[in-house]
């Protein structure tokens, strides 16, 4: 199967900026070939999953406001079927980490992630969630949520514009689209096997 098959209804393949990452990801997943029957089932499942990603309402600070803007009239992520924001982590598919995560919040976020049902995805929105951002020199900030939970998509900005968040959502859709229902990608497998991610300490 060609990598160019990763088509989502919202954006052309050429319009995405860094396709190499996804291509490597696909070739890693498809090592050893894919059974045509399994492939079709995969496509079907991934079509469903990538088109129905329900976010958890979770925001710690500023980026949450821009996340609300994405849901409001101007940007309207309902067009892509993302508007069913679930309040209970059990029913959500993706957690948007909007805003700074601090020491006191870190275990709570991890708990939230663990409460979500598989398949689950994480999007780190804004500088704070990616690396600590403007609060990197603080004593109480976690230097990026990937220290606590595995992140699928990073959306830089402080805060990112709604368009940037939409672009990140499209990236997540594409990522879901190439997943293999019968085979976990390596990073997630490690998490699944060890049971938990190791928490590292960020240095200021």
């Amino acid at each position: 199967m060609e990598v160019k098959d990763i088509r989502i209804p919202n954006m052309r393949y050429e319009d995405f900026n860094d396709n190499e990452y996804l291509e490597n990801y696909v070739s890693e997943l498809r090592e050893g070939g894919v059974n045509i029957f399994v492939g079709k089932i995969n496509d079907f499942i991934n079509w469903g999953r990538s088109n129905s990603v329900w976010p958890l309402t979770f925001a710690t600070s500023c980026c949450g406001i821009e996340f609300m803007c994405v849901g409001a009239a101007r940007s309207d992520f309902a067009r892509f079927g993302w508007e069913v924001t679930r309040n209970s982590p059990r029913q959500a598919d993706v957690i948007f980490v909007c805003g700074t995560i601090v020491h006191k919040m870190a275990p709570v976020l991890k708990r939230l992630y663990e409460q979500m049902a598989e398949p689950k995805y994480v999007m780190a929105i804004g500088g704070c969630a990616i690396s600590g951002g403007p609060f990197k020199s603080s004593y109480h900030t976690v230097m990026g949520v990937d220290k606590i939970i595995p992140v699928d998509v990073y959306i830089p900005g402080c805060p990112p514009r709604p368009e940037a968040i939409l672009y990140g959502m499209m990236q997540l859709s594409r990522k879901i689209k190439v997943q293999n229902f019968f085979k976990l990608p390596d990073e997630r497998k490690k998490v699944a096997e060890s049971g938990e991610l190791k928490v590292e300490n960020g240095k200021p």
Binding site: G48, R49, N51, S52, G81, R90
Partner: peptide, 17 residues
């Protein structure tokens, strides 16, 4: 039109905790 169909596929295959 197929939005909710996609939702159903996803929800059927989601983990039961």
């Amino acid at each position: 039109l197929f939005q909710t169909a996609a939702d159903m596929i996803k929800i059927v295959l989601k983990e039961l905790i």
